[in-house]
Design a protein around this nucleic acid. Sequence first.
DNA 1: TCTGGGGTCCTAGGACCC
DNA 2: TCTGGGGTCCTAGGACCC
Length: 406
Amino acid sequence: MRTYFHVDMDAFFVSVEELYDPSLKGKPVVVGGRPNERGVVSAASYAARKFGVHSALPLRTAYKLCPQAIFVEGHPERYREYSHKAYEVLCSFSPVVEMASIDEAYLDMTGCERLHGPPLRAAHRLHERMKTATGLNCSIGISVSRMVAKISSDQAKPNGILWIIPGQESAFLAPLDVRRVPGVGKVTEKNLNALGIRKVGDLARLDEAFLERRFGKWGLALAGKSHGLDAGGWFDSEIGADEGPKSISHEHTFSEDTADLGQIEAILSRLCEMVGRRLREHSLRARTIQLKLRYSDFSTITRAHSVERGTDIDTELCDEIRTLFRQNWNGGKVRLLGVHAASWAEGAGQMDLMGEERREKWSRALAAADKLRDKYGESAVSLAASLRGKFRERTHENPAGLPGKK
DNA sequence: TCTGGGGTCCTAGGACCC
DNA sequence: TCTGGGGTCCTAGGACCC
């Protein structure tokens, strides 16, 4: 029998912002952008949540619900920094730590009793050390199952600890809404509700075979989850095994929908550069390049093309993407563009669409550009098309022509 | 309520091969 | 030529998570 902790930082982005600006404390704060921007709430303070503001809510809606809230853009570098600080605290508690996202982690605490005492005492110590070392509150769920630990940390919020005594998993889960189960979103919840299944206990009473017939493999996993088992997909995998990214993508939503080809191609170039840069950072070459295109009516298509050898070169990505775009654009106003790279090429091959010499020349030039970007920021170096686009986008959003948002 | 951006995993059909 | 079956790759779309 194992012991897992799920550690989840409370209102993480907001709490980090409060460390930098203590005057925010206790006030309704919304992280995500300006209230009149296209976009959604990344995080809301507890004071803001009282007004019905929550993450994923459109910013404009958040503003309607809580006009007095303080809206901040957010600082990803700060969040990464504090995420790393939290990670170090966790590593001092268990050798088996897996960050599940920027603000939550799983710890395998099996066999740590001699060092830290029984689970609850260990959790209190961890909670305290987290506060001292980072200034941040977290909530901790404890169980023999990772999934139950995650649900219990959720129930423990804010700033709490909840231990599910071994053997009590089903009893703990039974009265909860099915929506609390990780992996059950809006759609699955609706489908389950339509069958009269509202609580996890309803799910647990059902025949496994019925769920499998109804929902396939996912139904079987659901049956296991309802009993507190780490069943299906994510929870089945080993904890702590980090294998690097499986895909790299960037996308951009226009502040106003556009059918201007110059503007569109400029953004595509910029996105390709961002993807290319990340590929080179990870020493990866992508075999599959995918375009994402969303129109004003929110209808969205993706179109992919695979190449034999893979690439990490901006111009090659750009050529692929531009072709995909020209082949598939219906001429309508575009809301969002995305560039997605996946399916990594094996080993250290050399050539693809270009000859080896040209390729090396490009690689050197791009490495130099990456360095400049490190030093002076993302906007320092750009392909011509991208530069044009930046100028247009910026002038569009920012008629004064002031420096960009970064 | 007018809907971001970065990911993961799953399904399903068709091509292609043996 | 009247029509199998399994495996793998590619593509498109969708649910879900933070």
